[in-house]
Design a protein around this nucleic acid. Sequence first.
DNA 1: CTGAAAGCGCTAACAC
DNA 2: GTGTTAGCGCTTTCAG
Lengths: 345, 345
Amino acid sequence: MDSGARRRRVTIVDVASRAEVSTTAVSKVLRNAYGVSPAMRERVRAAIDELDYRPQAAARAMRGRTFTIGVLLPHIRNPFFADILDGLQEQAGKADYQAIMIQGGENPQAEERAINALVDRQVDGILMVVPLTSRPRLEEIAKDVPTVVLGRHERSPVFDSVFDDDELGAELAVEHLIALGHRRIAHIGQKDKSRARPVDLLHTIRAETYRRVMRDHGLDGEIDVVATSYTEEGGYVGARELLGRPERPTAIFAGADLAALGAMAAAHEAGLSVPGDISIAGYDNTRMAALPNISLTTVEQDGVVMGRTSGRLLLERIEGRTSSVRFSVTPSLVVRDSTGAPPRP
Amino acid sequence: MDSGARRRRVTIVDVASRAEVSTTAVSKVLRNAYGVSPAMRERVRAAIDELDYRPQAAARAMRGRTFTIGVLLPHIRNPFFADILDGLQEQAGKADYQAIMIQGGENPQAEERAINALVDRQVDGILMVVPLTSRPRLEEIAKDVPTVVLGRHERSPVFDSVFDDDELGAELAVEHLIALGHRRIAHIGQKDKSRARPVDLLHTIRAETYRRVMRDHGLDGEIDVVATSYTEEGGYVGARELLGRPERPTAIFAGADLAALGAMAAAHEAGLSVPGDISIAGYDNTRMAALPNISLTTVEQDGVVMGRTSGRLLLERIEGRTSSVRFSVTPSLVVRDSTGAPPRP
DNA sequence: CTGAAAGCGCTAACAC
DNA sequence: GTGTTAGCGCTTTCAG
């Protein structure tokens, strides 16, 4: 079968001749710019509707804006990112911007290609969600296109940062476990594949805070961290390792809900009850955590607010703001059934 | 702080003058086109590297391709979509295409905006993942830009279809439950918000097949379908309703894993053991389903293969194929611990 | 094999 | 308030 000839797209010239005005006038109406009489605006609007005209982003890009915000995501498997995107779209939509996403992937090379793809497509702004690349590289990009970095704590003069107070969050989780009476508390973290300074990374902060709180309580000797990844698989593998220790932990603080779910799976497989034999806490408060048969104690960080704020900051930068902003979201602890007192020895 | 002046981007003219050739020559090298001597090609390559040049997609779009494939997703919360995207990117990457995603959302109006956004950005091809819009509208778009529709069963002369054999999948699940001895088997489906013909929709097919298999086994009187949505929430709400029946079902076939997880949560909350009191089966075989403490019996459909095939078909269409293809993936049943014999009365 | 030149659809100066 | 015009950075005839 033949797909038929592709029709020529309606252009600004078509609209202009239909409305019997200049293309300039049409362009002005499109952009809500000054210098069009109400009558003319009306005529142009009508022509646009009649012809079902929509401007081509590519042509606009050659001169002005694309009305596009690019979102770099490591991947789309983590449901936490869905909240961020919802928040962003809410803001972008209001200003007639479209959000497009691209997957950065596991390694800095793949991410670099993804970032370049966004830059080459002339997006008006970029939201980088937990990017792997180095800060100098981020700044290089931010000099060319408005940039907000989400999930890294660095302070930069050229891009904005939106992040969770990961130190507080980790503290809440570990203090909670200690308050329950646990001493042998382990942590499942994420192996570093990034070019960022470790101190700016959320998973490093969560792990370091875990260490610090343990020390604060005189539990230096109990510190035990396995670094896998913030995924079901990572949590499973990490927990298996921890459960194989001569003296296994009575509690695990996983750096992310997905990892906590994997850890629960490993505990279950080992015939251990949660929280009877072992307590497990996560981070993110994804929807899964709330399911009654999972009922995971976790740290809530408001992804929608983070996304919304990122969107707002991006739009501000697009409108010309050049000063730099850091926005931090305050997490809270959601206690559920996966944590309890340690087993009696 | 000031973000500094934005540097002028390196253009094809810069490369041409650096290599001391015409822009035509550079363009040809970029596109691997015929009519460039090896020596010239080498000089151009060198200049491109030295200047770190990358063509701007917008400028290319005005005349030729954007080397972009647009992916319309209902949302990014369902982990099954991640597999599809992985498969697609694998194919696209090989051909130097980039995949960008956009969220269609819950209603046809929002989806229409998202589709238009892709079209306006001149993507070279579109993968529509379970779109809500009508078939005529899909065909209208497909006439302008190469299109593959994933997850709908219709046969169209202008776009390709990639889907799972949902009839077989649902049959496997329901037959499995019947073979275990269940008679009172309920189904959790998805309420229709789409403009497609119901018969082409995966959730309708799964529900209808459930009905058909029940009838085939003389279980007409036991047919019980609640239509909510393929989400944790939908599964939870649906199962709550089912569990409230005077005679509650002994098994639930949920149309998607997420819904099955919600159903498990509802069962747990009601103090029912799975599968002791009630068996639960899902569809998709997401990673969650494999976790030992979930261990969900489910239907496996290979998302990576579906994504990969979609990518291949899209590239073929971009290269000029106009005949239409339908590709069906064969599902299989993965039996785990969430299903078992019905409780003794 | 090579390059000059036209033009894609839009925006922004700049006249009027 | 309105229209004319010159590009933006590429690709693509079409001569040479």
